[in-house]
Design a protein around this nucleic acid. Sequence first.
DNA 1: GACACGTGGTC
DNA 2: TGACCAAGTGT
Length: 355
Amino acid sequence: MKEKFFTRTLLQWADEGNLRRLPWKETKNPYLIWLSEIILQQTRVEQGTPYFLHFRKTWPTLQHLAKAKEDQVLKAWQGLGYYSRARRLLACAKRVQDEYGGRFPREYEELLKLPGIGPYTAAAIASFAFDQAVPAIDGNAHRLLARVFGIDLPPHSAEGKRAFRQMGARLISKERPADFNQAVMDFASTVCKPKPLCENCPFSQACTALLENRIAELPRKTPPKEKKKRFFYYLFIHLPFGKYHPIRQRPGGDIWQGLWEFPLIELPRPLKAARQITRTRAWKELGLPEVAARICHVHPPLKHLLTHRELHIQVLEVEAQALPEPLKTTCLITDTKNLPTFAWPKPLEKYANRK
DNA sequence: GACACGTGGTC
DNA sequence: TGACCAAGTGT
């Protein structure tokens, strides 16, 4: 397929009213565009949108955000995942404030130097906010370009990155770079989806993947790496003098770094399996106090423990001997209504409100 | 280059 | 239920 045809057809598709109307598309404000791009990294639009609105309301400008405390930002990020994005968001805001006088740089290469801004995000900001003709190559672009032009390279390999970037650079409209980049993403996410709607596709007469019946093979996927499961058993310790519960801050070098959570025991396998070896030497080698077997119901989802009041009492009774050393020394006491940033996949309230 | 980093939706 | 994946970046 000719590049000119692709670009013209795609922009025509955009002009037919097919671009998605989203809160961060109504503006050329670099701060809001940057904010949306960070939030949307590896994140679905539906999931990220409420966070974007909340951030925009809480910190309407870069100057507001640059003055925020890290725990405030993490708290607002709670539930979104990839929390390093939140830290880099704040770090980037401070850098732009201090080193660029509060204005984002316009150049791709300059944007790339900022924390949390990689090749995709730098291109997105440069094009959406500053109309620079830099192709924004994300997962959507990989899918669309790989299929239409038959790019048979793993998108994340060095060779693949080069090929997609070069193709994007050849395709991008110099007159309408922002519309082009947006159209690539919106077309790929509404038509050229993982399971594409080829009958509605203006490229179907010329699409390499469709003509060669290779839709399923393009873009090339890297074999999924095996994910290790981990088994966390949280202790929701109910103290007698009010609605207070011990929590602690997670250490560095692991998931949920620096976030807050209930004290936990991590096991190498699900507790149900662990219980089967209760009487064996292996059980003792786990370093688990016997009481851990009794709190076997204390595990996520949290709704379990919130609805089993008696379990709290059991845990409390054995606390002195049962808890691992670090727990006894680092527990803080806090009201659950006033928690700092939490490591839970959802804000605590979402669990606590269940009955 | 491989890997870690989160969460929620889909089939 | 589990595998897959969705607007990537940093180490």
